[in-house]
Amino acid sequence: MAELRYAFYTGCSAKGVAPELYNSTKLVAEKLGMELIELEAATCCGAGAVQEKDEFLALTINARNIALAEELGLDLLTICNTCTVMLRETKFKLDNDPELKEAVNEVLREAGLEYKGTSEITHFLWEVIDGVGLDRIREMVVKPLSEFKIAPFYGCHIIRPQYLIGYEDPDNPKSIEMLIEALGGKATDHEARLACCGFHSFWSAEEKVTLKLTALDAESAKEEKADFMVTPCPLCHTQLDAMQPEAESRIGVKIGMPVLHLPQMIGLALGIPPKELGLDKHVVSTEEILSKV
């Protein structure tokens, strides 16, 4: 088996409003034999916000982030869809434009760094599937999720755009379904599985766009009688879970759909106690899930 060592890029959310994602990732990674070396000097990826104001700054900051992984000689592993796409965007642009790469490196060299392009950017979901492997996961399951109907919510930036992601077909991805199946659960085929949670227009279109999308997504999972939604992205999680009460008020309907982070779902099947996975840290109650584990 290949050595599963990664430069671990946490992103802001896992260090901010989603500590349960950080903790559950570490616990599950350890159990799966993945070694995560945390990039403690890494900064925010810009989240698309900096990219809308100063593209060169965003590229340079992310080139530094990737260079930190290159210093360790490791591939960079993320746990957030938006971090993945922003770091990939930098890598794609620099690797395909030598002049731009040189301009960025002129800045990085002032601080004794260099972006080479030797580290790949990858997401936890993909490494669980292709690094650890679904067969191995199947063997490690001690508490199969056979009681659960689970609604996969991919989140945009782990499937789109193809020129930056390309892991699987953005029109018909199956990775989360495959993982759910390996953990013994049943995935729902709900309308919103590839939809957007609305997070990125929250501050400018909360009422007009964001909360309506959030409500549609959670309702869609409920229509298929899902026990919970699962997402590989902490931004989707914040939107779907922590903002679900606002989304309910927006449409005037109670939804009450629990949302789990991807590693939390894996952790449950691997027999890690729910409290250690931080299932008590969610806004929408996870008690019904706990009673079935």
Partner: peptide, 24 residues
């Protein structure tokens, strides 16, 4: 400190860089 240095240099250099649109 390294981040700040890079930030400042990137801000200075920004106006001289012509970022191309990606071919996709």
């Amino acid at each position: 400190e390294e981040v700040r240095k890079i930030y400042e240099k990137a801000k200075e250099k920004k106006k001289y860089v012509k970022i191309k649109l990606p071919q996709i």
